[in-house]
């Protein structure tokens, strides 16, 4: 793990007109580190994820990222071309709704190969081999490579999203409620898979979830958000076993249906 952070957020604030999205969020994320952002819906956790992933522009504050070449860049100063390159090479984004993260009319192989083609891969055989390899790693049968995700189950779609994102070996993956809406057994299998890949590849992950069990299983650190603010942060086990804030205590004791 490098001493310099991979990503640094400083004073990140977002207003939607008069309404506060999130306020003054500051943290560092190191390579290989998994950070869970938890809170109820409306707590600002999705806004924060949007700001970090450059999908939203902050009202105040900044995000810095250490690029693959080692240069630390202010993400708001990237050109659109640089931003897109970052999004599809060194970053991944696994969405809650697979339809937003996949091309539903394109085969599984094409979905996985898209990023490679976007960065200039022009050898069909190599692209297909890489797609096959990644489908195997997310436990999708080789025979499904030419099927579109329309015919896939919810769990398979999420696994396909993961393969599609990891094919370019990103160092940072954003995940937005990747397991919600799935059956419990399917969730467990997916979480297992994510945990294995994260460990194996040394991925840094920022995962937004309302499910503390997901946070506990995957994350090293946790940030609890409420009404746009980070109210508690620390090592996941410490925060969940011994929450300081009354609100976190309520969350942990499941009094609040987050």
């Amino acid at each position: 793990m490098s001493e310099r952070p991979l990503l640094s957020a400083r004073g990140l604030t977002k207003y939607y007109g008069e309404r506060l999205g999130c306020w003054d969020v500051t943290f560092d994320l190191h390579e290989g580190e998994v950070l869970a952002v938890v809170g109820e819906s409306g707590s600002g956790k999705s806004t924060l994820l949007g700001l970090l992933a450059t999908e939203l522009a902050p009202s105040a504050g900044a995000v810095h990222y250490r690029m693959r070449d080692g240069v630390v860049r202010d993400l708001s100063e990237l050109t659109e071309a640089e931003r897109r390159l970052l999004l599809r090479t060194d970053w991944g984004f696994v969405r809650q709704d697979a339809r937003e993260g996949l091309r539903m009319g394109v085969s599984a192989g094409g979905n996985v190969g898209e990023r490679l083609m976007a960065v200039g891969a022009r050898h069909y055989g190599n692209i297909r081999a890489a797609a096959s390899d990644w489908l195997a790693r997310v436990e999708i049968e080789a025979g499904r490579i030419d099927d579109t995700p329309k015919s896939f189950s919810g769990g398979m779609r999420q696994r396909l999203q993961i393969a599609r994102n990891l094919v370019t070996h990103p160092r940072l993956v954003f995940m937005d409620e990747p397991t919600s809406g799935l059956d419990v057994s399917v969730q467990a299998r997916l979480l297992d898979l994510i945990r294995g890949l994260v460990a194996e590849l040394g991925l840094a992950v920022i995962i937004v979830t309302h499910d503390l069990a997901v946070a506990r299983l995957l994350s090293h650190r946790i940030m609890v958000m409420r009404r746009g603010r980070v109210i508690e942060t620390g090592l996941t086990d410490q925060v969940l076993d011994d929450p300081r804030e009354a609100y976190t205590q309520l969350l942990v004791s499941s009094v609040l249906a987050a």
Partner: peptide, 15 residues
């Protein structure tokens, strides 16, 4: 940013 064009050709070959 024309990677998508190749996705289309990829799909052709795959099918």
């Amino acid at each position: 940013d024309y990677g998508l064009m190749h996705v289309k050709l990829y799909e052709d070959i795959a099918r």
